[in-house]
């Protein structure tokens, strides 16, 4: 079975391990951060046109150069902030492979947590969508109860949590059946 995620590769991927799904937080989550960025950008560009009209006496050649410098500096800050928000969003990812779930949490620039959960350790999966906007836009949380050291694996604010829950349950069932088959083969050999 071919998957269009085959072109994706992550650090620590095993040989033969297939990437089945790459999940990021829902776009609404990053939109709330970018509203601030867009709002500030609108103010900056708006001030370029409106300042000479509102404060004509303040518009001298020296002041114009200074305001241009201030606006340009503010744009640099906005651009850097926008990409820092993007890095925090885009590199927060859950990777579902043929063998496990890998959770990569990027917190800012210098903190990165990676945890994984093999499907054979999955005990129960719950999805949760609560609130008006999450219901309309279909995003929420998926909780994976595990038999591992980390008892609960959480997919936070992800799109279509019901589908993710179904996928994890299916892969967990397949892993259980494979384990049973391996156990039966091992017992037969004895």
């Amino acid at each position: 079975m071919t998957h269009h995620f085959n072109r994706y590769h992550f650090q620590g991927q095993h040989e033969g391990e297939q990437v089945l799904n790459i999940i990021h937080r829902h776009w609404f989550n990053i939109l709330t951060h970018y509203l601030v960025v867009f709002g500030c950008a609108f103010l900056v560009f708006g001030s370029i046109g409106s300042f000479p009209i509102l404060f004509p006496e303040a518009v001298t050649p020296a002041n114009q150069a200074f305001f241009l410098f201030a606006q340009n500096t503010f744009l640099i800050f906005l651009w850097l902030y926008g990409f820092l928000v993007w890095v925090d969003y885009y590199f927060d990812v859950w990777i579902i492979t043929s063998e496990r779930i890998v959770n990569i949490e990027q917190r800012g620039l210098f903190i990165r947590h990676i945890s994984e959960l093999r499907f054979s350790r999955v005990q129960d999966v719950t999805s949760s969508v609560s609130g008006l906007l999450p219901t309309i836009l279909n995003f929420g949380d998926v909780y994976v109860q595990t038999a591992a050291e980390e008892e609960r694996f959480v997919f936070r604010q992800v799109g279509d949590p019901f589908a993710i829950k179904s996928e994890v349950m299916r892969l967990s069932r397949v892993a259980s059946q494979e384990n049973m088959r391996d156990l039966a083969n091992a017992l037969e050999k004895e």
């Binding site: 994706y8 992550f10 890095v87 885009y90 590199f91 990812v93 990777i95 990569i104 990027q106």
Partner: peptide, 8 residues
């Protein structure tokens, strides 16, 4: 970060 951690 873009070059090191991007999956694609």
């Amino acid at each position: 970060h873009l070059l090191r951690y991007s999956l694609d």
